[in-house]
């Protein structure tokens, strides 16, 4: 009996604190968080600004990958939820004069849940390419809606996003970059960490296992009592809410929301980031988002043809490293460990 317990502890991470501090991953994670915390002090304003954008996208990517990596549904219109989140902040701060960021985030989630529940009810009836194209269609529908209904949405010029109050504090006297890479940076970092924690709980939960079952083999899952369509729908709604929070966090950074946010290339960016980082790993999409944002920044300043470079990279990933960066790192780490063992 005793040996049984020991062997299961080695293979399955145990919940206790003692087991947690013995694991290397925990320390790596803490080191990562510490880097993010210290960055505005040591890394310079521009780098912090880029990382700030990453936090927003990171939350959206976590949601996107719950649907893609864990449920097996590739959405090609997920920027739609990102946009709904961003427009919510714009509406609340600029039109309704409700400057509180917390209110913006909550409303963004509510709006996204309603939209996702409706669109999802239609879309989850389909899978694979049909699902992807249907989502693409909904994304582009939103795009034309935002362009055409000028009086509600500001048309192609979009709408401004006023500086939000954080935890009730009015910080409008600060210079823009100081605000963004100061208080706002830590605010978004906190939301990012909480969102990542919650998503980790979701994928480690009973529901998470059921979603993976739906992805791997819907027929078998159905016979094991999992209502496949309903579970896809749940995943879709959670995913939409996450993307909306991401959009809401990014909105004050860009300062103005416009319809290009929901253009299909922006949905494509989310797909690209996820593939780049690796969708089979929980942290993969985050890694992909971070690398993408820095690469884009670097390549854009050097070359006019940055899209060409990114296209070539995408082809390279799909052919050579389908597991993305995270997959490649895992492979190398495993090889290294095997060598060390031998």
């Amino acid at each position: 009996m005793k040996t049984d317990k020991l062997s299961s502890m080695g293979s399955e991470p145990n919940g206790s604190f003692a087991a947690l501090i013995r694991k290397r991953q925990t320390w790596l994670l803490l080191a990562g968080i510490l880097c993010f915390v210290l960055l505005p002090r040591v890394g310079g304003q521009y780098t912090s600004y880029l990382v700030l954008t990453f936090f927003g996208y990171g939350v959206a990517l976590l949601g996107f990958n719950l649907l893609f990596g864990y449920t097996g549904l590739l959405s090609f219109g997920h920027a739609l939820f990102f946009t709904s989140g961003a427009y919510t902040v714009s509406y609340l701060t600029a039109k309704f004069a409700i400057p509180y960021m917390e209110v913006s985030i909550v409303v963004a989630v509510v709006v996204a849940v309603v939209i996702a529940a409706l669109i999802g009810a239609i879309c989850v009836r389909y899978i694979k390419i049909y699902f992807a194209l249907l989502m693409l269609a909904f994304g582009m529908l939103t795009y034309s809606f935002l362009i055409k209904f000028y009086y509600i949405t500001g048309g192609d010029e979009g709408m401004p996003v006023l500086r939000p109050h954080l935890l009730g504090f009015d910080l409008s006297s600060m210079a823009k970059m100081d605000f963004l890479t100061g208080w706002y940076y830590y605010y978004v970092l906190t939301v990012f960490i909480i969102a990542t924690w919650i998503m980790w709980r979701i994928v480690s939960s009973h529901f998470g296992l059921a979603l993976r079952a739906v992805r791997d083999n819907p027929e078998k899952a159905y016979y094991l009592g999992i209502d496949v369509r309903r579970y896809r729908w749940y995943a879709f709604i959670i995913s939409g809410a996450y993307a909306a929070v991401g959009g809401a966090l990014v909105a004050p950074v860009i300062g103005n929301v416009d319809p290009t946010l929901t253009y299909w290339t922006h949905s494509g960016t989310l797909v690209f980031m996820t593939l780049l980082g690796g969708f089979t790993n929980f942290l993969g999409p985050l890694l992909g988002g971070l690398v993408y944002i820095f690469l884009q920044d670097g390549v854009m300043s050097l070359l006019h043809y940055w899209r060409f470079v990114f296209g070539a990279m995408l082809a390279f990933i799909v052919i050579v490293a389908p597991g993305g960066l995270a997959g490649a790192i895992e492979l190398i780490a495993n090889k290294y460990c095997a060598k060390k063992g031998a």
Partner: peptide
């Protein structure tokens, strides 16, 4: 799925816990 995950899926489904999204399965 690992063997245990596979069996757990059947068990949690019977116990009606499939939609528990904030409990740690392990």
């Amino acid at each position: 799925f690992t063997v245990m995950e596979f069996i757990k899926l059947g068990v949690l489904s019977r116990q009606g816990k499939g939609a528990r999204f904030y409990a740690i399965l392990k």
